[in-house]
């Protein structure tokens, strides 16, 4: 069943055309790798899915609904979550505030005034989520800016998973992590798939992409240039599709060395 389908997505910034009509579809519970050279338009494409950018033309359907006109908050409520490369955390706020930012549970103050944030409920759920991820944080009441890179990544992942998403987009989730932490992110992606949650993984680490995805889409010059089934492809083919000819053997050998 198709969860997300994009048709002819175009996006330009002033005179710079970034996306020239991208087609992409993701099924429920499918893990799709999105690869491409720097400047191929990967991040721009993902931000048109989350609604940070509005596509100039084309159509985006999610779960059978046209979502082109919806803002990021509305798309999030439908079940699209993204873990950004820069993590997009509010560094001076604590763990629960980040996880629930924009979606804080509220209660009535003295049973009268509505709209007050239920902080104890937030803290409780945040602690439960962090525990479910099997992560350890020094304290959930501290500002996340005082945490290590891996710990901040945990908060960003917890934020994406707390509201039962249908699609999680991960932009370079392993770029800044230690080897052991990389493995736990890959395990997490496999777990999401087994729970029926679709994942779009953007990564330069082709070994990770090949080991965890079902399909690999290669973005090149603002187009979806290739759509490969992971089980039927290999490093050489992926690399050659990314660079589009040239000295493929040398580039592939470089990637293989990791």
């Amino acid at each position: 069943m198709t969860l997300l389908s994009l048709h002819g997505i175009r996006k330009s910034f002033g005179a710079v055309d970034v996306l020239h009509g991208v087609d992409l579809s993701v099924a429920a519970g499918e893990v799709v790798g999105l690869v491409g050279d720097n400047g191929a338009g990967k991040s721009t494409l993902m931000k048109t899915i989350t609604g940070i950018y509005r596509a100039d033309s084309g159509s985006i359907e999610f779960d059978g609904k046209d979502i082109l006109a919806l803002d990021p908050g509305q798309r999030r409520r439908l079940g699209i979550e993204m873990i950004y490369q820069d993590l997009s955390l509010a560094k001076q706020q604590d763990v629960a505030s980040n996880i629930f930012l924009g979606r804080e549970p509220t209660k009535r103050l003295f049973g009268l005034f509505p709209g007050f944030v239920d902080k104890s409920e937030m803290d409780r759920q945040a602690a439960r989520m962090i525990e479910r991820l099997g992560a350890h944080l020094p304290s959930i009441n501290r500002s996340v800016g005082s945490f290590s890179g891996g710990q901040q990544q945990t908060v960003a992942i917890a934020r994406a998973l707390t509201f039962n998403p249908k699609l999680v987009i991960m932009d370079e989730p392993t770029a800044a992590l230690a080897v052991r932490e990389v493995q736990s992110v890959l395990d997490l992606i496999r777990r999401l798939r087994s729970e029926g949650i679709a994942v779009i993984l953007i990564s330069h680490r082709l070994n990770d992409v090949l080991s965890v995805t079902d399909r690999i889409v290669v973005l090149r010059h603002g187009r979806a240039d290739a759509d490969l089934v992971t089980a039927k492809t290999n490093m050489n083919e992926v690399v050659s599709r990314i660079v589009g000819g040239g000295d493929i053997a040398a580039a592939a050998a470089h990637e293989q060395r990791g």
Binding site: I52, D71, Y84, N98, L101, G102
Partner: peptide, 11 residues
């Protein structure tokens, strides 16, 4: 704190 984080959170 972070305008980008706020925007990404749908604010």
């Amino acid at each position: 704190d972070s305008e980008g984080a706020a925007r990404a959170a749908g604010i």
